[in-house]
Nucleic acid binder design. Structure first.
Length: 571
RNA sequence: UAGGGCGUAGCCAAGCGGUAAGGCAGCGGCCUUUGGCGCCGUGAUCGAGGGUUCAAAUCCUUCCGCCCUAACCA
């Protein structure tokens, strides 16, 4: 069927926002926010939420806030606040001067709690955590089937307003030990939505907070904080992930029962999952604190910090996020899809360079001893403006070990005894002899070159089936290269094989370090973070561990490899 | 079990009653001084059944499957 292709369809959230705008809601404003808890580093899943909230505001001429949801001092830390700010900014989401902390609203929240008590809609409860759970009516298996009994009222539910006010005041004043009392909303203990069965608003925690210090010993829960914070900030559309859908009735109940200045609307969307990795902060904390990776910014991690160190650009992440769309159906995106966007972005912007990761020495027998020359190489065939550079050529070179086979199979176009190939931007060479050590390992190739093919073309028109990258041995820089693979060996670590845990599925070969790599001298002064395409090998970037006399590169992504694929098919 | 949500090709995703967009992956081919890039071609009757209608992926209905919650975490 014929359908206009140029009409980009809107996702369901943008459609709702557009409708609200059309109906003149919210004084025709659009205002979103992203509310992280500073209890870990953010990951690519968060990036989707950040970019969605930010871009919706952008597209509708609205504003975007960054608000830390810092209501649980037990897990939070300023280190995470700083890391999150850095990562959000790096992704390109600009909160301008609107950086907020839910902890700034603690006093207002307290006043609203008092209001609720006065209205007879909240009470101080002495039940323990376990008792609260029991009274709530937890699902139970009666031997035949699981049932969900209605909850029953707390015996403290009918305390007088005066008593509640007094108790709540003393809770704040520090009169009670941790866990002995809570403030709960008085809603409905038989409500089918468990969140509505008298949820806890405040718990007692004699713990100092990274921003409010020891000013408080009672801390508001997420549910009691979130919607009201949105209201205070004038948020019009509070976009969050699907697991909060169950909380929406409560979110709305608070707004309905409080004298809030504004009425925000919560809309939920599906979070992303990506194959061969895990996307939960809880798991990330275990990976980091359990030393299964080298920190939050380990290039194998799906954290923003890790991806940045890996060499992935914010543009690639944005393109990826835009590509997967916004829906309510939860799925698992293939890693190949992320890699596609990484390659597409890096292909256009990365200067090419030649580097040999697994060196095999080549001596050009007919090239004069002691002679050398400079050859011109194109910096980026995708970008004419990138210009050219010169690379040194000499009698002794290194080529990639995988580019030579003594007994090549059919369709192996590269170097083998007697065959001729092109050295990129240099000459045609022919392999004349194979030098081996006592164990029969190939340690050197003796080749001859054709002086007439300088630059890579033969005047007589003869063709060659392969072009190899290479470096001049006396001129090349030694480098360490870190090759990364999937962090996990199974696509979904959340459902590991029988008898295994998710940690058992970590890929033992996710990091491979090569110390004897050689790279052309043009990268000598590259800045940390510089990205390159090592021709025929992949995309790499200079790691912060790099020193002037010891270059360290991270492999961001491999190039697609038709030969590799053909081999795998042959196996 | 209760409440909430989801189900369109291997993956993501358009579609909103008029007879299945697009991307990724795969496969085949072209091009090529990166076996890269680029280009061309190639796949579905929409979880299942029933119903309404001239016409249904789109409406109704029953069923099935999967996910979320049942924390004084967010």
């Amino acid at each position: 069927m014929e359908r206009p292709n140029d009409v980009e369809s809107r996702d369901f959230i943008r459609r709702i926002v557009a409708e609200d705008l059309a109906e003149g809601k919210n004084e025709s404003r659009v205002h979103t926010r992203w509310p992280p808890e500073p209890s870990g580093y953010i990951h690519i899943g968060h990036a989707m939420s950040i970019l969605l909230n930010y871009s919706v505001a952008q597209e509708f001429g609205g504003q975007f806030n960054l608000r830390f949801d810092d209501t649980n001092p037990l897990a939070e830390d300023t280190e995470f606040v700083e890391a999150i700010k850095r990562d959000v900014a790096w992704l390109g989401a600009d909160w301008e001067d609107r950086l907020y902390f839910a902890s700034e609203y603690f006093e207002q929240l307290y006043q609203w709690a008092v209001h609720l008590i006065q209205e007879g809609k909240a009470y101080v409860c002495d039940l323990t955590a376990e008792q609260i759970s029991e009274y709530r009516g937890t699902a139970a298996f009666d031997g035949e089937r699981t049932t969900t009994p209605p909850g029953k009222n707390s015996p403290y539910r009918d305390r007088t307003v005066e008593e509640n006010l007094d108790l709540f005041h003393r809770m704040r004043a520090g009169g009670f030990p941790d866990g002995t009392k809570t403030l709960r909303a008085k809603i409905d203990m038989t409500h089918p939505n468990l969140n509505m069965r008298d949820p806890v608003l405040y718990r007692i925690l004699h713990v100092s907070h990274h921003r409010t210090g020891d000013a408080w010993c009672i801390y508001p829960t997420y549910d009691w904080t979130h919607g009201q914070s949105d209201a205070i900030e004038g948020i019009t559309h509070s976009l969050c992930t699907l697991e909060f859908e169950n909380h929406r009735p409560l979110y709305d109940w608070f707004l309905d029962n409080l004298p809030v200045p504004h009425r925000p609307r919560q809309i939920e969307f599906a979070a992303v999952g990506i194959g061969y990795t895990v996307m939960s902060k809880r798991y990330h904390r275990q990976l980091v604190f359990g030393n299964h990776v080298h920190g939050w910014d380990d290039p194998r991690m799906p954290t923003i910090a890790g991806m940045r160190r890996r060499g992935i650009t914010p543009e690639a992440i944005r393109a990826f996020v835009k590509g997967i769309g916004v829906t309510k159906s939860e799925g698992m995106i293939e890693m190949a899809y992320l890699e596609h966007h990484i390659r597409q972005d890096l292909n256009k912007r990365s200067p090419r360079v030649m580097a040999v990761l697994n060196p095999l020495k080549v001596v050009i027998a007919n090239y004069p001893q002691g002679q050398s020359e400079s050859l011109e190489a194109i910096n980026n065939p995708e970008d004419p403006l990138a210009g050219v550079r010169s690379v040194p050529f000499s009698r002794e070179l290194y080529i990639e070990r995988e580019d030579f086979m003594e007994n090549p199979p059919k369709k192996f176009y590269r170097l083998s005894p007697g065959s001729e190939v092109r050295l990129r931007y240099a000459y045609f060479i022919r392999c004349e002899d194979v030098v081996k050590d006592a164990d029969g390992n190939v340690i050197e190739l003796r080749c001859t070159y054709d002086p007439d093919t300088r630059g890579g073309d033969a005047p007589d028109g003869r063709k060659v089936k392969a072009t190899l990258h290479w470096v001049s041995a006396p001129d090349a820089l030694r480098a360490q290269v870190r090759l990364y693979d999937h962090l996990f060996s199974v696509e979904n670590p959340h459902s590991p094989p029988e008898g295994k845990t998710w940690l058992d599925t970590l890929n033992p070969e996710s990091l491979q370090i090569r110390n004897d790599c050689w790279i052309e001298p043009s990268v000598a002064d590259a800045a940390i973070g510089s990205r390159f395409q090592f021709e025929r090998m992949g995309y790499f970037c200079l790691d912060p561990d790099s020193k002037p006399d010891g270059l360290v590169f991270n492999r961001t992504a491999t190039l697609r490899d038709a030969w590799l694929k053909a081999q795998q098919k042959a196996d």
